[in-house]
């Protein structure tokens, strides 16, 4: 059994103008110790997906369908009390901006101890020892003194290390990290990412990394999910997607990166921009921006086609696969 299995997940936001589907028919699995990347541009729904795994979607949003099976238990149907034993304990979350995550009027130690005492029946001293040990794990120098400092006394990189330490406090099974290094400089980003991979490997923790940066996904994850307008459009092993993307949107994203173009030449841009959720085009949501658009793309939602070890939601890929099969039969 997979550690986490998401089945046909649907999330809607009830707005005055009517319900808007933020996630449609999401399916994926995550094994113990596996690192998964959720990629997409702003508005793709990657953060909503990250939040809904812990059932943290705030009103007017709610999970309207599907299951989130964590070790067989459905998180989507759990009561708030049951969820509290999972959140921060078995599945923890790391957010983009460490200054927003940390409480500015409490010392780092107070915040860490508070979290430990909420989940475990241990003494304050024991909690502090664990906290110091976790700070050491994330390579914070002299954790014994740092633990009594306030967040503003630390640099951005150090703060994010503290947040990671808090995420690791309860030895969780899964860490969901939402753009954990986007606010940081490249050299710090590289260090933090390396640290996260190392910690996940050492403790056999699964990681769901939400990011817009394909470079980071390529460096860190084993499996990747590409999202567009609330839907998974391609998923599979990261290397396969990076080296041989099938969906025109994934290809477009990759080709738009400056490192894929010849210096001085124009970049390969994708025309237009991501639709808002109220105005998702019929058929394939990507069809108005797609270079390979066919008639069927405009009125029929593409199903998933298997290509290598990847699943792709694209009519063109489906057609190519059908042609391959029929030519084999002949």
């Amino acid at each position: 059994m997979a550690l986490l299995e998401v089945r046909n997940l649907e999330v809607s936001f009830g707005l005055r103008s009517g319900a808007v589907k933020a996630l449609r028919n999401i399916n994926f699995t995550l094994d113990r110790g596996e690192r998964l990347g959720l990629v997409g541009e702003s508005g793709a729904g990657k953060s909503v997906l990250g939040f809904s795994i812990l059932n943290l979607i705030a009103k007017p949003g709610r999970i309207t369908g599907g299951e989130i099976l964590f070790e067989g238990q459905n998180l989507a149907r759990m009561s708030a009390r049951e969820l509290r034993t999972i959140r921060g304990n078995r599945i923890s979350m790391i957010f983009q901006d460490p200054m927003m995550t940390l409480n500015p009027v409490l010392t780092i130690g107070q915040q860490m101890v508070e979290c430990l005492l909420a989940h475990r029946k241990i003494s304050r001293e024991n909690a502090k020892t664990i906290a110091i040990q976790k700070l050491k794990q994330v390579q914070i120098p002299s954790p014994e003194t740092r633990i009594d400092q306030y967040p503003h006394e630390l640099s951005g990189g150090m703060r994010q290390r503290v947040v990671i330490a808090i995420g690791l406090l309860m030895d969780p099974d899964i860490i969901i990290a939402d753009e954990p290094t986007t606010a940081l400089d490249v050299t710090i980003q590289a260090e933090i990412m390396e640290l996260m991979v190392e910690l996940c490997e050492r403790n056999n923790v699964a990681l769901i990394l939400i990011t817009h940066d394909l470079g980071v996904v390529s460096q860190v994850t084993q499996k990747a999910i590409v999202m567009y307008a609330g839907r998974v459009i391609e998923q599979g092993p990261t290397r396969e997607i990076i080296n041989d993307a099938q969906h025109p949107y994934t290809q477009g994203l990759m080709n738009a990166l400056p490192q894929m173009a010849i210096p001085g030449q124009r970049l390969n841009q994708i025309r237009g921009s991501m639709p808002t959720l109220q105005k998702i085009p019929t058929g394939c949501a990507f069809n108005p921006r797609c270079d390979y658009v066919m008639d069927v793309c405009k009125h029929q939602l593409p199903g998933y086609t298997r290509s290598g070890n990847c699943q792709v939601a694209c009519h063109m890929v489906a057609e190519m696969k059908r042609d391959e099969v029929s030519s084999e039969e002949v």
């Binding site: 640099s155 990189g157 150090m158 490249v186 050299t187 980003q189 590289a190 260090e191 990412m193 390396e194 940066d213 394909l214 470079g215 980071v216 390529s218 460096q219 290397r239 990076i242 990759m254 990166l257 490192q259 894929m260």
Partner: peptide
């Protein structure tokens, strides 16, 4: 050198990034 080695690249086989001591 350290700055360039820290760029997240798509390629799999790039050299590991150069770690700097301490912070700015």
């Amino acid at each position: 050198q350290a700055l360039l080695s820290a760029i997240p690249r798509l390629e799999d086989d790039r050299p590991p990034h150069i770690k700097l001591q301490g912070e700015v």
